[in-house]
Design a protein around this nucleic acid. Sequence first.
DNA 1: AATTTCAGCGTACACGTGTACACCATTTTA
DNA 2: TAAAATGGTGTACACGTGTACGCTGAAATT
Lengths: 207, 207
Amino acid sequence: MSGIRAQQKEKTRRLLIDAALNQLSADQSFSNLSLREVAKEAGLAATSFYRHFNDMDELGLTLVDEAGLTLRQLMRQARLRIEKGGSVIQISVKTFMEFIESNGNEFRLLLRERSGTSTEFRAAVSREIRYFTMELCDYLQKANKLDVETSYLQANAAVTIVFSAGAEALDANDAERKELADRTIKQLRFIARGAMDLSARSSSSSG
Amino acid sequence: MSGIRAQQKEKTRRLLIDAALNQLSADQSFSNLSLREVAKEAGLAATSFYRHFNDMDELGLTLVDEAGLTLRQLMRQARLRIEKGGSVIQISVKTFMEFIESNGNEFRLLLRERSGTSTEFRAAVSREIRYFTMELCDYLQKANKLDVETSYLQANAAVTIVFSAGAEALDANDAERKELADRTIKQLRFIARGAMDLSARSSSSSG
DNA sequence: AATTTCAGCGTACACGTGTACACCATTTTA
DNA sequence: TAAAATGGTGTACACGTGTACGCTGAAATT
């Protein structure tokens, strides 16, 4: 039951996952990454791959799940920082940019497979982003006393803007990233202000 | 000089371009489209491809250019509609959604290659989107008497939101698209309102 | 009319791919 | 301790890929 064998298996499974992740870059996407390349990078024979995954898609979906998880953990970190005081928007953007910097490959994966050719991948990424959006939506609802629709609209728009900025950040240098962060912060303020204004207006005209 | 030959060449070049475009779909991206497949679809021998393009990248960049052009022509149409009266935001979103519906493959191309593995493709798409954004920026500046920075921030955010909605629309049915359009319109109003408010505030405090 | 140009074709090649298969060594089970 | 299960290996195969090369017939040029 201790499982010296299961333990080793988990270890080389990890090796494969990390190998795939490490091979991702600006010049290489998961979809044009071959099973053989991954196995080689992991130091395994090509056919050993099958002891752990049925095919590359299975590996890829695992990566998407992990990336989504990392993203949500990031959100928790941001909330902790916010509780200690500071601008919500500023801290959130900064945290996100740190994520891009230290987890560029995970983010690239999400970004690319979101509009990729596999229905399953698209659904998986879409799901992860939906989780992310929903958590923000809850937060906005409670923090700003907004109605459900408005807070959802705001959360969805904010996530879109932040993701798009993240995508640009991948190709940017430090100075450009700073600029990008500033721009994003201002845009999120536009959205927050607009949501407040228009929500107030519609609730006063309808009730 | 009439060029019965040049004429024919242009014709089969068009055949190749259209063949590539027609092979794009939810399940097939340009990057995993092979030279042989394109040539076959166009009814040519594989090697004839080289009489028109050096490689697939050259074809792809041509497609990106054409897609960008189509996008800008679309903008002109929207402006014409707006001059006849109507909500700027509503008409723009509607026009964009019509573009997605009738030019899905072009849009898919832009969407995917924007975060693809080729630096050249990314640059090309980025350039097209920049043109698109700049035209909107000019318009906002004149129509709303905003300062350059604010109108740029607004234009950039608006384009991001609209593109993201377009991406979702690709996988959506008619009802979902309607919903999507409504959501997008509201979000663009948030942004417009926020830009107005915060621009006014900063200009009154600084001048 | 003779010559040159050139779009399009078919063959051929080396290469990388996924994966089927038989085999081995070691852990696990009986 | 004997038998079974299993992670890892290497070989082998068919397939699709880009593209080099030489050829052909018709258009263009001289």
